[in-house]
């Protein structure tokens, strides 16, 4: 008689003014929740990417000296690093390459390369390697004075702290959205109860169980929430695509832009169902509670 997503046959909640705007409110809530959820997942994946990218790469910086002395130091450093187990690749950057890296900050590379630039060596560590970076850095600076091993760790730590804070903020926003949705649904359900008190009494006196009445409310409100959640989610995905496109236009060579991972898409797809379930549970709880106060 009462289908899951069907009409509330006796109570005819469809004609209520109290719940007419619920889908719009739910839609807005789901829009915000979807953006927060997308933020949570994409930042999480970005942190993983940065961490993987940075922890496998080291940079050795050798202070500027006379070019001949510097070339010699570079060769010693390269030979020294290649003796370490776990070091996969050691590649000294040419002066032109270093100048090219500084071009966005200092101007044309052909001019920059005439400056007293330190020499850089890119070191790639084998995956799963147990290389002791602190000991390696010390040995290197003892062997080659003026050489410094840069692990990028302090920079990455700051980035991770920032990312985690943003994640925490997104989770807090999700929580607030959840609470707000529950409160809105509670008000709508209570209003519905008051508006249909007379029919509820007839149903009760005709032998209807509380669950029979509650089912009509919970199914109807779950339907409203589900249908409201769909456009909210759709708009959020569109906004995310636009933001993704704009981010991809940025030439940020240092870090990769956050991207949604598969689990994130799954979570987004589940959002309308979760909202419908949350609504259903809330409405059932409220209606059953109110019915218990009647005889």
């Amino acid at each position: 008689m009462i289908q899951f997503f069907g009409r509330s046959n006796e109570l005819q909640l469809e004609k209520d003014a109290s719940s007419r705007y619920l889908p719009i409110v739910i839609s807005s809530m789901v829009f915000l929740a979807a953006l927060a959820l997308a933020g949570l997942f994409s930042i999480h994946s970005a942190v993983e990417n940065w961490s993987t990218a940075v922890s496998g790469n080291l940079t050795v910086e050798i202070e500027y000296e006379a070019p001949r002395k510097l070339d010699k130091k570079v060769k010693i450093t390269v030979d020294f690093l290649r003796t370490f187990p776990g070091v996969e690749k050691v590649r000294p950057l040419s002066l032109e390459e270093s100048a090219k890296l500084l071009e966005p900050y200092l101007g044309r590379a052909d001019v920059v390369k005439d400056l007293p630039l330190p020499r850089l060596i890119e070191v790639t560590i084998a995956e799963g390697s147990a290389l002791d970076l602190v000991a390696t850095a010390k040995k290197l600076s003892d062997t080659v004075p003026g050489a410094r091993l840069n692990t990028h760790r302090p920079w990455l730590n700051k980035m991770i702290t920032l990312a985690r804070s943003v994640q925490l903020l997104a989770a807090a926003i999700m929580f607030i959205i959840g609470i707000t949705t529950v409160i809105i649904v509670i008000f709508a359900a209570r209003t519905g109860m008051v508006m249909h008190q007379e029919i509820i009494e007839v149903l009760h006196l005709t032998g209807a169980k509380d669950t029979y009445i509650a089912r009509q409310f919970q199914n109807y409100f779950a339907k409203l929430s589900f249908l409201g959640a769909l456009p909210g989610l759709l708009i959020a995905v569109l906004v995310m695509q636009i933001l993704g496109f704009l981010t991809s236009q940025l030439e940020a060579s240092l870090i990769t832009a956050p991207t949604m991972i598969f689990e994130g898409w799954i979570a987004l797809a589940m959002l309308p169902f979760l909202v419908a379930l949350l609504t259903m549970g809330t409405v059932r709880w409220i209606v059953m509670g109110s019915l218990k106060r009647m005889m």
Partner: peptide, 19 residues
């Protein structure tokens, strides 16, 4: 206390349907 949106048949059938 009839349910105005239900037909005569559905109003009378209410106790049986509930049961």
């Amino acid at each position: 206390r009839l349910l105005n949106h239900l037909s005569t048949l559905d109003n009378v059938a209410l106790p049986l349907r509930i049961a």
